[in-house]
Measured scan of single mutants.
Amino acid sequence: EINVTSHGEEQAKHWIELAKRMNLDVEVEIHGDKIIITIK
């Protein structure tokens, strides 16, 4: 399980695309200006 804290939408999209390509599950939480991505 990987937790990524992203401070930008572009960076977040990059991680989500990467996870989808690798067929991994992704959870995205938004806390103000921080985007927390959990890849399982």
Score class of each variant (00 low, 15 high):
Gly32Arg: 08
Ile16Val: 08
Asp25Thr: 15
Val28His: 01
Glu27Lys: 13
Val28Pro: 00
Met22Thr: 03
Lys20Met: 15
Thr38Asn: 03
Glu27Gln: 10
Ile30Trp: 05
Gly8Phe: 15
His31Met: 09
Leu24Trp: 13
Thr38Lys: 09
Ser6Asp: 03
Glu27Ala: 05
Ala19Phe: 15
Ala19His: 10
Glu29Trp: 13
Ile36Lys: 02
Lys34Val: 10
Glu1Ile: 12
Lys13Trp: 12
Trp15Ala: 03
Asp33Val: 14
Lys13Ser: 05
Ile30Ser: 01
Leu18Lys: 05
Ile36Arg: 02
Ser6Asn: 09
Arg21Leu: 15
Ile39Gln: 01
Arg21Asp: 15
Glu17Pro: 14
Gly8Gln: 10
Lys40Tyr: 10
Thr5Lys: 02
Ile36Tyr: 04
Glu17Leu: 13
His14Phe: 14
Ile36His: 02
Glu9Trp: 15
Thr38Leu: 07
Ala12Ile: 13
Ile39Asp: 00
Trp15Gln: 10
Ser6Ile: 15
Met22Trp: 14
Asp25Gly: 03
Ile2Leu: 07
Lys34Thr: 09
Ile39Ala: 01
Ile16Asn: 02
His14Gln: 09
Lys13Thr: 05
Gln11Trp: 14
Ile35Val: 02
Val4Trp: 04
Lys20Pro: 14
Glu1Arg: 02
Glu27Ile: 12
Lys34Phe: 13
Ile37Arg: 00
Glu17Trp: 13
Glu29Ile: 11
Asn3Leu: 12
Glu1His: 10
Glu10Thr: 08
Lys20Thr: 10
Glu29His: 09
Val28Trp: 03
Val28Lys: 00
Leu24Gln: 01
Ile36Asp: 01
Ala19Cys: 15
Met22Tyr: 13
Lys40Phe: 08
Gly8Ile: 15
Ile36Glu: 01
Ile30Ala: 02
Glu29Phe: 12
Leu18His: 02
Met22Cys: 15
Gln11Asn: 05
Thr38His: 07
Ile39Thr: 01
Asp33Phe: 14
Glu17Lys: 09
Asn3Tyr: 10
Ile2Asn: 11
Ile39Phe: 05
His14Ser: 08
Glu27Met: 10
Asp25Cys: 15
Lys20Ser: 13
Val26Asn: 00
Glu29Tyr: 11
His7Ile: 13
His31Lys: 11
Glu10Arg: 08
Ala19Leu: 15
His31Leu: 09
Arg21Tyr: 15
Glu29Leu: 10
Val28Thr: 01
His31Arg: 10
Ser6Ala: 14
Ile2Phe: 10
Leu24Lys: 01
Ile16Pro: 09
Ile39Glu: 00
Glu29Ser: 07
Thr5Gly: 06
Val4Glu: 08
Ser6His: 09
Ala12Asn: 10
Ile36Gly: 01
Gly32Trp: 14
Lys13Gln: 07
Ile37Thr: 00
Ile39Gly: 00
Gly32Glu: 09
Glu1Thr: 12
